[in-house]
Amino acid sequence: MKSSTWNICTVSTPRELEDAFSVRKNVFVEEQGVSIDLERDHEDDSAIHFVLYDHGVPSGAARIRLLETYAKLERVCIQKSMRGTGAGAALMEAIETEVTKQGFDVAKLNAQVHASGFYKRIGYTVCSGEFMDAGIPHVTMEKRL
Rank of each mutant, 00 (worst) to 15 (best):
Met1Leu: 05
Met1Asn: 08
Met1Ala: 11
Ser3Leu: 08
Ser4Pro: 03
Thr5Gly: 05
Trp6Phe: 08
Trp6Leu: 09
Trp6Cys: 04
Trp6Asn: 04
Asn7Tyr: 03
Ile8Val: 10
Val11Lys: 01
Ser12Met: 13
Ser12Gln: 15
Pro14His: 08
Arg15Val: 10
Glu16Ile: 05
Glu16Asn: 11
Asp19Ser: 11
Ala20His: 06
Ser22Met: 05
Val23His: 01
Val23Thr: 02
Asn26Met: 10
Val27Leu: 06
Val29Ala: 07
Val29Tyr: 06
Glu30Pro: 05
Glu31Arg: 05
Gly33Ser: 06
Val34Asn: 08
Val34Asp: 07
Val34Glu: 06
Asp37Asn: 15
Asp37Trp: 08
Arg40Val: 07
Arg40Asn: 06
Arg40Leu: 10
His42Arg: 13
His42Val: 10
Asp44Trp: 02
Asp45Ser: 12
Ile48Asp: 11
Ile48Tyr: 08
Ile48Ala: 12
Phe50Asp: 00
Val51Phe: 05
Leu52Ile: 02
Leu52Ser: 14
Leu52Tyr: 06
Tyr53Val: 02
Asp54Gly: 04
Gly56Phe: 03
Pro58Glu: 03
Ser59Gln: 03
Gly60Pro: 03
Ala61Asp: 00
Ala62Tyr: 00
Ile64Ser: 10
Leu66Trp: 05
Leu67Ile: 09
Thr69Asn: 15
Tyr70Cys: 14
Val76Gln: 01
Ile78Arg: 07
Ile78Ser: 06
Ile78Asp: 01
Gln79Ser: 14
Gln79Cys: 08
Gln79Pro: 01
Ser81His: 12
Ser81Phe: 11
Met82Trp: 00
Gly84Ile: 01
Thr85Met: 01
Ala87Leu: 02
Gly88Asn: 03
Ala90Leu: 04
Ala90Ser: 15
Leu91Gly: 08
Glu93Cys: 07
Ala94Tyr: 03
Glu98Trp: 00
Val99Pro: 03
Thr100Gly: 10
Thr100Met: 14
Thr100Leu: 12
Gly103Tyr: 12
Gly103Pro: 02
Gly103Trp: 10
Phe104Ser: 10
Val106Pro: 07
Lys108Asn: 10
Lys108Gln: 13
Lys108Gly: 12
Leu109Pro: 09
Asn110Tyr: 10
Gln112Tyr: 01
His114Leu: 08
Ala115Pro: 01
Ala115Lys: 01
Ser116Tyr: 05
Ser116Asp: 12
Phe118Asn: 03
Lys120Val: 05
Lys120Pro: 00
Gly123Met: 04
Gly123Trp: 00
Cys127Ser: 11
Cys127Ile: 15
Ser128Ile: 09
Met132Tyr: 14
Met132Glu: 15
Ala134Arg: 12
Gly135Tyr: 14
Ile136Lys: 13
Pro137Met: 10
Pro137Asp: 13
Thr140Cys: 11
Arg144Met: 09
Arg144Glu: 09
Leu145Gln: 14
